[in-house]
Simulated scan of single mutants.
Amino acid sequence: MTGALEAVSSRRSWSKVTDAAPTRAELVPLVSAAGRVADHSSLRPWRLIELRGADRDRLGRAINKAEGKDGSSTKPLRAPLLIAVVASYRKSDKIPRWEQEAVASGVAHMLSLLLDDAGWGVLWRTGHYTRSKPVAKAHGLEKNEELLGWLYVGGKPPRTRPSRRKAVDARHHLSRMPREKKGTGDAAS
């Protein structure tokens, strides 16, 4: 296997991580590399927000507010570093909104692969509150932005059991374009 194929094939989500986390200096080159995903017209319709320490408590309060609860959710405390993935839509007559969101999602996925390859445990978390006003306000989102979730990042704990995730049988997901039925083709056929 090539390095990339091996990294992708062995990737898994880490729901439990240790308190270790990459520094900003370690994170910057990974974000730079992740930003090289396919991006029609190079709009770069995304941004990432680091949440460490007290930022996670603030997010916990915003999540509870979005759910109509008092206090602070402990969900953001499950990892020492959260990276908020933000679709930052750009005005374009050529590139639709869905394609810009796909680019932001691609950056998040690429970053999760790079973090995993660098030895960090990563889990992409979402939830109905990602699109709530209190959570958007806590992240300082603009009107042209939407939160797609967070990458929860921390150290990989010692592996106690193998991953339960089975390999994908590509034959069920990869097909050819259907053949054209006789009499429905264009005049050039």
Score class of each variant (00 low, 15 high):
G3F: 15
R12I: 13
W14M: 05
T18A: 07
E26R: 11
L27W: 03
P29D: 03
G35P: 03
G35W: 01
D39Y: 01
D39K: 01
S42G: 13
S42H: 14
R44W: 11
R47S: 09
R47A: 10
E50I: 12
R52A: 07
R52N: 09
A54T: 02
R61H: 12
S72R: 01
S73Q: 00
L77P: 06
L77T: 10
R78G: 04
P80L: 03
L81G: 00
L82E: 03
A84Q: 04
A87Y: 14
R90M: 04
S92E: 07
D93Y: 14
D93M: 12
P96S: 04
R97Q: 11
Q100N: 08
V103T: 02
S105V: 06
V107L: 01
A108N: 02
L113E: 00
L115D: 05
A118S: 04
G119A: 10
W120A: 04
L123R: 07
R125Y: 11
G127C: 13
Y129N: 08
Y129E: 10
R131F: 15
S132D: 15
P134D: 09
A136G: 15
K143I: 05
N144D: 11
E145H: 09
V153E: 07
G155K: 06
K156S: 02
P158Q: 15
P162S: 14
K166H: 11
K166V: 14
A167F: 05
D169P: 10
D169S: 12
A170P: 11
H173R: 12
R176H: 14
K181G: 09
G183E: 08
T184L: 08
T184M: 02
